[in-house]
Design a protein around this nucleic acid. Structure first.
Lengths: 216, 216
DNA sequence: ACCGAATGTTGCTAGCGCCAACATAGACCG
DNA sequence: CGGTCTATGTTGGCGCTAGCAACATTCGGT
């Protein structure tokens, strides 16, 4: 065995190749497999087959890695949401579909969902900026749907009353965020099959949307 | 009423006196002061001025202590809620007052609120039984208010439609739970003064209650 | 061909949760 | 009273973690 260091997958641009990505994937795998977000940085490094300190070349600290995972989570959730609303145009339908997709996404990977809201290592100040940015994108999408509904009369909201539009957006988000977490924590009785959850979230979201509908 | 063994806190019945209570109080103090729930058991012991292993005589492990703090949190929240609804009778008013009090409580002590939902050390299975019991009490209270409103016609819900009553309860809880967490995480813009939060939660809750009101 | 920067490794410190062995002070019983 | 039993608290240690520091390797540009 002379030299022949490696021939197969990577082509190894640097030492490892793309360690940053490998670390994120390892962490996500742990997340999906164990449903716990309190894994150690060293465990992630082990899974990626690097030394326990290699991650520090790509992430300032553990919290930064967790934040990066969260950001990836928002991207995945965005795609799920886009798929769920494909073909829909009525704001009420959009809102309901988005809500159901949101809950389904969170429930399908509880540990990831928690990371997306910075559930690990809560510093007194808020979430890391990277996460806040990703969250802002999602929030704006929701806000857009509410506003569209207000403008075309689907919802009983004056589109020029920005406070009320904002309150409705927050209410909608609160509703699905809360429902997702209560479901994850098994705080809603009922069985937890995917269809049962979909059914429940459908009822809850519909109840909310019904409240927005014009009275007449 | 035979014995009545103790009336004063100190008097030091055993080595320390009432270490269990002292540990809980130390932990709650850390929680309130630092707003973080990732403190160490050893730090709690230090603050109570006992050795790093003394807590294990009163709590099976760290998770048990965290659960006990959470239980105490539900009791405190229950009292707050009872105070908030004093004098009210109309279910819609009760629901709104309860919701506002709920959010205010959670926001006033974020770390405690998180502990109440087992945000630390997430085992794959659900929350510790002690917490589930305490949560059940709170949930039943909410359910009672919804049911009362359905029965006296305050809400557009058939009181015999248990599924719909249940869905409304879950929706109401989801709404305030989500709003509390979003506010804690500073995910709702607006300033975070107590009155601003009260105002926002009032709007959101009112928007929800309005959706429950009979149409005609 | 070489140098500097980027990347990865080894070894360390301080701290953690929890176990095991030991010490002490009440309670209980003669 | 004296003796023992048990609840409570302490000391010490194990294996783990996050992050720092110093060293080794590899790549990219000149």
């Amino acid at each position: 065995m002379a030299k022949l260091k490696q021939l197969e997958p990577p082509a190894s641009p640097y030492h490892h190749g793309d360690l940053r990505r490998a670390l994120l994937e390892s962490a996500q795998a742990i997340l999906a497999e164990t449903s716990r977000w309190d894994f150690s940085l060293r465990e992630v490094a082990r899974r990626a087959e690097v030394s326990h300190n290699a991650p520090y070349r790509h992430f300032a600290d553990k919290e930064a890695l967790l934040a990066a995972i969260g950001v990836a989570g928002y991207e995945a959730m965005g795609e799920r949401g886009a798929g769920a609303v494909a073909g829909l145009t009525a704001p009420a339908d959009l809102l309901a579909a988005l809500g159901k997709a949101y809950v389904a996404f969170g429930v399908s990977n509880p540990a990831l969902y928690r990371l997306m809201f910075g559930q690990a290592l809560p510093s007194v100040e808020g979430l890391p900026p990277a996460l806040l940015d990703a969250i802002g994108v999602a929030r704006n999408q929701l806000h857009g749907v509410i506003l569209a509904g207000a403008q075309n009369g689907s919802f009983d909201i004056d589109p020029n009353d920005t406070a009320r539009v904002g309150a409705a957006s927050i209410a909608a988000w609160s509703l699905v965020h809360g429902l997702t977490l209560l479901t994850i924590d098994r705080l809603v009785e009922r069985d937890t099959g995917a269809e049962a959850i979909d059914d429940l979230s459908g009822q809850v979201v519909e109840l909310f949307v019904a409240g927005l509908r014009p009275k007449g």
